[in-house]
């Protein structure tokens, strides 16, 4: 894997306090975001993909806390910072958000205020980090909107978010994420709320921006199609663990983990024969407070080794390498 990563997550663990006790949302998660590459993070509900993004930005809900691991910005350089050591409200952390790491939300409305024009919000974001003055900031806001593929940006800059369609709003959301000129971008299900033709437009846009600006993009999605089209590397998550981590072509052509195999087979196929049944994974994703012992996937795994998978979890994927967290693979070595 080419360049030195801009951001490395190492053995990150996050817990949430709930009425019923603490719930482990992330368990030994490691991943790398490299410049010019797209890391796809895929998984079903409750797998911890959004929690990972929120942990990196240190915007976990109040009842959540990082209990172990490191989030290293610029690892291996003299400027290396461990984000877990920073106070979430500190100036340093605020400098990281926006200027180093931008965030694109699933629902752009959650990032945009209804009370201010698109331009107002963009200008505020531009001036927050490196204030170039009001009129320059406005020019830059218009450029950002143009970059985000918004037609007639000179007039749209004065529009309110509610005057825009869902697709345009997401473009504004992307412009907002880019306002601080970050080199890392986290997109949390950026197209899930959109229609398929709009989704195609947004994905094309993200791809273009990421390539042009040589951005390290972390793309969180549940859609295998989006991952296949967009990602260079992918992390498959299940119940807070990365079960497989590898270049996307490797995962699709020769998945290592039984969960990945099953997940890929259960995706509806555009070329299916009429009334073709899908391969299924038995059962449902367990509730986070009812985590199975051992490997979290073992109750649903078709290749489970009883007496082993249900006792202790397999070793996590070694950081920085391709692999899967499964006893079957440990045995094969």
């Amino acid at each position: 894997m080419a360049d030195r990563p801009l951001l490395s997550v190492r053995e990150l663990a996050v817990e949430f306090r709930a009425d019923t006790g603490t719930v482990r949302a992330l368990d030994s998660v490691s991943l790398d975001l490299r410049p010019g590459r797209v890391l796809g993070v895929v998984g079903e509900s409750g797998c911890g993909k959004s929690v990972t993004a929120r942990a990196i930005l240190r915007i976990l809900d109040r009842n959540g806390a990082i209990v172990a691991g490191k989030i290293l910005l610029d690892p291996g350089t003299t400027a290396e910072v461990d984000l877990t050591a920073l106070n979430p409200e500190s100036q340093a952390m605020r400098g990281v958000r926006g200027a180093r790491v931008g965030l694109i939300f699933q629902e752009p409305m959650s990032a945009l205020s209804m009370q201010y024009t698109v331009g107002n919000q963009l200008i505020e974001a531009i001036r927050a980090h490196n204030d170039p003055g009001k009129s320059v900031a406005r020019q830059r806001a218009i450029e950002l909107l143009r970059d985000a593929g918004i037609p007639r940006p000179e007039t749209r800059v004065d529009a309110y978010p509610f005057q825009l369609s869902g697709g345009l709003r997401q473009r504004v959301g992307i412009a907002l994420a880019l306002a601080g000129d970050p080199d890392i971008l986290i997109a949390d299900e950026p197209t899930t709320a959109l229609d398929v033709t709009t989704q195609a437009q947004i994905l094309t846009l993200l791809r273009r921006l990421q390539r042009d600006k040589h951005i390290a993009l972390m793309l969180i999605t549940h859609d295998m199609g989006v991952i296949a089209q967009m990602a260079d590397d992918m992390a498959v998550m299940y119940l807070g663990r990365v079960v497989e981590y590898a270049p996307v072509r490797e995962v699709f052509h020769s998945p290592r983990h039984p969960y990945t195999r099953a997940l890929l087979r259960s995706v509806p196929d555009l070329r299916a024969t009429p009334r073709q049944r899908l391969a299924t994974i038995g059962g449902a994703v367990p509730q986070p407070n009812a985590r199975p012992s051992g490997c979290p996937f073992h109750p649903r795994c078709p290749e489970v080794i009883l007496g082993r998978c249900d006792v202790a979890p397999p070793a996590p994927v070694p950081p920085g390498e391709a692999g899967a967290s499964c006893f079957l693979l440990e045995d094969a070595v």
Binding site: T280, G282, G283, Q287
Partner: peptide
Amino acid sequence: MSTALADD
């Protein structure tokens, strides 16, 4: 293919 119930 009956699914397990949360035994709660």
